[in-house]
């Protein structure tokens, strides 16, 4: 092939590669545009304060209302509880992997965490229905489908996220700090709790934030075990509906303002996750400086 056509291929190839790289950016932009385009018209009919702060969600009533506060609170409860349950186990595992585990034990543990993160959410949902819901029913009464059940399942799902990122941070703590602490006569646990964990703090917080993002966006598993009652959740054991559950449940028959309200809910979700991610990016950059 002559030089000219080779050069043409070179130029063309470059453009194709750049275009491919831009697909992701374009997708993010388009997703934002489309969802906002569907969601913003809601506020022609529904005042923003009512949307965010009213617990009255009654789209099919004669005088419809679209307040998503119940769902916001439900999402909070579910994700908050799941972080509460998952954090001790995750941090312990991260500490164990970073500082103690060697060879075979470490390999098995890592493999387990990998597999755990690969299990699809529908399987978690099924497991939740068959095992977690009856458990909650036996211990707390009611019918078992509750925000608590959703939180328990979600906790298992976010374990790998917290463990992986925290482990990296803990391993990155300078060994000379460990040495200094040991040389002063500290026990292993004192060194871990007073020096290593505080030093790894920003990485651990980042992992929690990422886990929070994952938890808040989870749909399938919470839908199957959360009870899906569009009421204000009075306790963790009551049935509830998270923001994601609301979108999925009503979308099949919604129209008009109702549908816009669902997209507005999606916007809310979108903003929240964007904020979380920007927080992590900002925190990482600050640390690197």
């Amino acid at each position: 092939m002559d030089i000219r056509s080779r050069k043409r291929i070179e130029r063309g190839g470059r453009v194709i590669l750049l275009a491919s790289a831009l697909v992701c950016v374009a997708t993010v932009a388009l997703i934002t545009i489309f969802i906002f385009a569907q969601g913003i018209p809601t506020f022609r009919d529904v005042p923003l304060t009512e949307f965010l702060f009213s617990t009255n969600w009654s789209p099919s009533a004669a005088d419809p209302h679209y307040g998503v506060l119940s769902f916001i609170v439900a999402s909070f409860i579910v994700t908050g509880l799941s972080l509460l349950f998952a954090t001790p186990i995750s941090l312990a595992t991260a500490v164990y992997l970073a500082l103690f585990a060697k060879g075979r034990k470490a390999a098995i543990l890592r493999e387990s965490i990998e597999l755990l993160s690969g299990i699809p959410s529908i399987i978690y949902g099924l497991f939740g229905i068959a095992v977690v819901v009856p458990f909650v029913r036996n211990v707390f009464g009611g019918n078992g489908y509750s925000l608590l059940s959703a939180a328990l399942i979600l906790a298992i799902m976010i374990l790998p996220t917290i463990i992986n990122i925290s482990e990296v941070s803990i391993s990155a703590v300078s060994p000379s700090l460990k040495e200094a602490s040991v040389a002063l006569g500290a026990t292993t646990w004192q060194t871990i709790s007073r020096v290593i964990l505080p030093s790894a703090r920003s990485g651990i917080v980042a992992s929690l934030v990422m886990a929070l993002g994952r938890a808040v966006g989870e749909t399938t598993a919470v839908l199957l075990v959360g009870g899906n009652a569009p009421l204000f959740p009075k306790s963790p054991v009551s049935m509830g509906r998270t923001l994601t559950m609301n979108i999925v449940t009503d979308m099949s028959y919604a129209e008009g303002v109702h549908m816009s309200a669902l997209f507005a809910t999606a916007m809310l979700l979108f903003f929240f996750i964007l904020a979380l991610n920007l927080f992590v990016i900002h925190a990482t950059h600050r640390r690197e400086k």
Binding site: L177, E179, P198
Partner: peptide, 9 residues
Amino acid sequence: FQRPNPFPM
């Protein structure tokens, strides 16, 4: 130690 290693506190 050889390199000073104060805690980040």
